[in-house]
Simulated scan of single mutants.
Amino acid sequence: MSAIDPRALRNAFGTFMTGVTVVTTRDPEGKPVGFTANSFTSVSLDPPLVLVCLANSSRNRAVFAETPGFAVNVLSEGQKHISNTFARPVEDRFEAVTWRDGPFGAPVLDDVSAWFDCSRHKLVEAGDHVILIGKVEAFDDSPAPGLGYARGAYVTPAMEARALASRADLMVSALIEHQGEVLLVPNDDDSLALPVARVGKEGVSAALAQLIAEHGAGIEPGFIYAVYEDDDAGCQHISFLCQAAGPVSRHGVFKALVPSVLAKIEDPAMRTMLERFAAESRIGNFGVYYGNQVSGKIRPIAAGSGSQ
């Protein structure tokens, strides 16, 4: 194998360190194993070191603790299904993907944004996790945008670009959650709604920031939860999932999304979205919705992308 180019490696690190990854190796019998992780971090450029974390409770823990090397595959934005597969207790996770052996021997997945094939440098016990530190022996990257994950939702550059491209009568709502309850604002007729604002010439980000500021401190802007065409209102609607530090707001109250509360949501499109959010919150699985107030598609995502 040729020597690692530090400048090229630095560029790859800078581009992909926040992405969702699948970490792979082979067990003592040569069978490929792997898990989804979002704790991939650059440690050093000289020597080139990276680390990933693996839960002690993982069924893969023993294999990765003894492996002479592993690969970190940074998934591209079209590979959410691979993230889901390697985050679940599937019998053969590699059956649904195409892959090959990397230069150092660990499985490298096809069509990823980047991969790093590593030899084992050190293993560090850290509470309920073990830290795997690898020395990069070979790597490659591609122009494919990476797949991100935050606050229970996948995030991709294309997803946000498509949602933010339209300026024709665009509405933004804040789905502000705190410990299972959602901030709802009363209307004059005693119905309820999410905080909503029309997007002006300043753009979506400014509208969301203003909407959050109006409802109090301690609310962190999140990521897109739903994008839909509200045909009844004649507008496009983008809802952002946000988190509140506490259950207090200048306007509105935090309420559990029980049937009696959902019945007070006057807007049928918003009510449908909140019914889905309530169902997903109960089972811990989330998805991003695209469509209109009548029908659409939900792109399912995993409940979390931590070590499995």
Rank of each mutant, 00 (worst) to 15 (best):
D110S: 15
V52C: 15
N60G: 03
A278T: 04
V248W: 04
S39V: 05
R59D: 12
Q243L: 07
V288E: 12
S173E: 12
A168M: 02
R10C: 09
A71G: 10
L54W: 06
T272I: 11
S57I: 08
V185T: 15
D110E: 13
A126E: 05
V124G: 08
N11W: 11
A71M: 13
E266L: 11
R93N: 00
S295R: 07
S142P: 08
G19A: 12
V90A: 12
L45Y: 13
S39P: 06
L274Q: 13
G127T: 08
G69W: 00
M159W: 04
V63Q: 09
A163N: 13
E29H: 03
A71Y: 08
F16P: 04
R100V: 09
G252H: 09
D189I: 08
Q236P: 04
V227A: 10
A65K: 04
T156W: 01
R167F: 08
D140E: 08
G180R: 08
T67I: 00
S113E: 05
A269M: 05
V90S: 10
N187Q: 14
G19E: 06
P143L: 04
N60Y: 03
A206E: 04
D27P: 00
R10T: 11
A244S: 15
R10W: 15
P221I: 03
A197G: 01
F64H: 07
F86G: 01
A217E: 15
V136G: 03
F286Q: 12
L132G: 00
A71V: 06
D232T: 11
D190G: 14
G14M: 10
P145C: 01
G200P: 02
A165D: 15
S83V: 13
F240N: 09
G296M: 06
L54V: 07
R93F: 00
G291D: 03
V43W: 14
T98C: 03
D92Y: 03
E280F: 11
P32A: 01
A256M: 14
L208S: 04
G222K: 13
F16T: 13
S191R: 02
C118I: 04
F277Q: 03
P186S: 09
S58E: 08
F70T: 01
I238M: 12
